[in-house]
Structure formats: C-alpha cells, structure tokens
C-alpha cells in the first residue's frame, strides 16, 4: 500500500524529503548511546570477571576495601552528580512556550524522546537480565556476607542508579520539551518509570529479608517477589509506545500535508 503512495510522490515532495531538511532519527547518536553504555558497563563487567572471585569474596578482607569499596563510592558520587547534572540541564533548557512549538520541531523532539527511551531500554537490558543474573550466579556459588558484594556493587549501586537517571531524565525530557506533556501527565509513562525506580528502595526489603528471615539463596523466593511486582510495571510501556506512535503518526501526517501545500 505504501509502495503505491511512494510512486505517486511529486518532485516537490521528493525535494522535501532531503535529509537535511527534516527531522529524523539520528542513527549516529543511537550508535554512540549504545556504544557508551556498552563500554561503561562492559568495563565494569570485565573488572568484575577478574576481581570478584579473587578479591571480592569477603567484605572484611583488606583487599575488598582496596579493590571494591572505592569503586562503590565513586559510583555513588558520579551517579549523584549525573542525576542532578542531567536533570538540572533538562530543566534549565526547558521549553518556555509550549504552544509555539511547530509540528516539525515537535517531531524532532519525539525522535529525541525515542533516544531517551532507547537509553532507558539499553540500561534496562543490562540490568534486567544481565546484571540481575550475575547476582543470581554469584549468590549460588558463594557465601553471602554483606550488602556489598561485587555483583551488588554492579547491580544495585551501578546499573540501578543508571536506570533511575535514564528514567527520570526521560520523564524530564518529555515534561520540559513535549507540548502535550507540558501541563499534564501520561499515566502509563508514570507507571512504567516509577516501577524501575522503586526497585532501589525494594533493595532495602530484600537485604532486610535476607538478614532477618531468609537464609537460602533460592532466587525465586518470596523475598524477591517485590522486584517481580515492580518488573510488571513495565507492562505500561505499551501505553507509552502507543502514545509515541499516535503522536508521531499525526505529526508526520501534518508535516506531509504542509509539504503538499
């Protein structure tokens, strides 16, 4: 169907489709976003591979304090700075006049939003499957000591804060740049983002449970179900995707109609 539409394009329309002229996805930015996240987490991962089973088995060994705790504290500091830096920047550069945004600009910002969602998705990919199960593998072969194990430092204090920065950044981006979001909130977006954010406080329940009443390392144990519940919040991503498709669809339509006039 679309192919017929393509064959019916006029020279003017083909001219309008020149890359420089219209907003579109900046693939190079997509590539760099993925590369940077992969590189940073990958470096962390390589470090873990080398240092976890050697100097990471016991919090109370001096080696742990040399090789692991500085990493933890560095993550806390960098994470805090990044959180306030990113959101501060997004707020300072916010759109002051949402009504005046042209469809073309708005479409460009939706592609920007997609880049944010993409960052969120990549970090979630790292955290959800990869970092979480590194912790599963770790606990089943070692003896639990404190809340600071190498895999916890990678999961709870690195991947999870990174996900929170991406989630809050995504929200701030939508709030400060997209006219539809300027004076109201999209409920599915709120649910999809607050689920992962709440995982961090749930770590408190998890560690409390492991200390107080649950001594086994069964990964599917009820002490972990708080995490599962929050993972379910991501079902609301469907609502976000439908919003993005609907809005971008009508913006693209508007721009096409504009080009035809």
């Amino acid at each position: 169907m679309s192919v017929e539409a393509l064959s019916g394009t006029t020279p003017a329309e083909q001219l309008a489709s020149k890359r420089a002229d219209v907003p579109g996805m900046n693939w190079s930015k997509v590539g760099w976003t993925f590369a940077i996240i992969a590189l940073v987490y990958g470096a962390h991962r390589v470090y873990m591979q080398q240092m976890a089973f050697t100097v990471g088995l016991d919090y109370f060994e001096p080696e742990f304090q040399i090789y692991w705790m500085p990493l933890f504290w560095a993550q806390v500091v960098v994470g805090g700075l990044a959180f306030f830096g990113v959101n501060g920047y997004l707020w300072m550069t916010r759109e002051k006049n949402p009504e005046a945004v042209t469809p073309r600009d708005e479409l460009g910002r939706y592609f920007g939003l997609l880049l944010w969602v993409f960052s969120f998705a990549v970090i979630l990919g790292v955290l959800g499957s990869f970092a979480t199960e590194s912790d599963a593998a770790w606990h089943q072969v070692t003896i639990r000591d404190t809340d600071f194990t190498p895999t916890h430092i990678g999961l709870f204090y690195f991947a999870l804060p990174a996900l929170i920065i991406a989630a809050v950044g995504l929200f701030m981006y939508a709030k400060t740049r997209l006219p539809q979001h300027a004076d109201k909130y999209l409920v599915p977006l709120g649910i999809a983002l607050s689920g992962p954010i709440l995982i961090l406080p749930t770590v408190g329940y998890n560690e409390w449970g492991h200390t107080f009443f649950y001594a086994e390392e069964l990964f599917g144990a009820p002490v972990h179900w708080g995490f599962a519940f929050l993972g379910l919040a991501l079902l609301a991503v469907g609502g976000v995707v439908v919003h993005i498709l609907a809005r971008m669809g009508s913006l693209i339509q508007e721009i096409q109609d504009e080009a035809k006039v």
């Binding site: 679309s2 579109g24 592609f111 993409f118 998705a121 993972g231 991503v237 498709l245 693209i252 096409q256």
Partner: peptide, 28 residues
C-alpha cells in the same frame, strides 16, 4: 497516503520502537 518523507520517518520510528521493545520486553 504517505509521501517519501513520511515513509522514511515512519520507518525510523519502526526501527527504534522494535529495538527498544526487544530490549525492554526481554529485560522486563
């Protein structure tokens, strides 16, 4: 009815959404 421009933009959206959903659904 979509112009070449529209088709290109919509394909961009397709690609992004599909990659995003593989990651989010797989990870979640």
């Amino acid at each position: 009815r979509s112009s070449a421009l529209g088709l290109r933009l919509e394909r961009h959206v397709d690609w992004m959404i599909i990659i995003i959903l593989i990651l989010i659904i797989g990870a979640a």
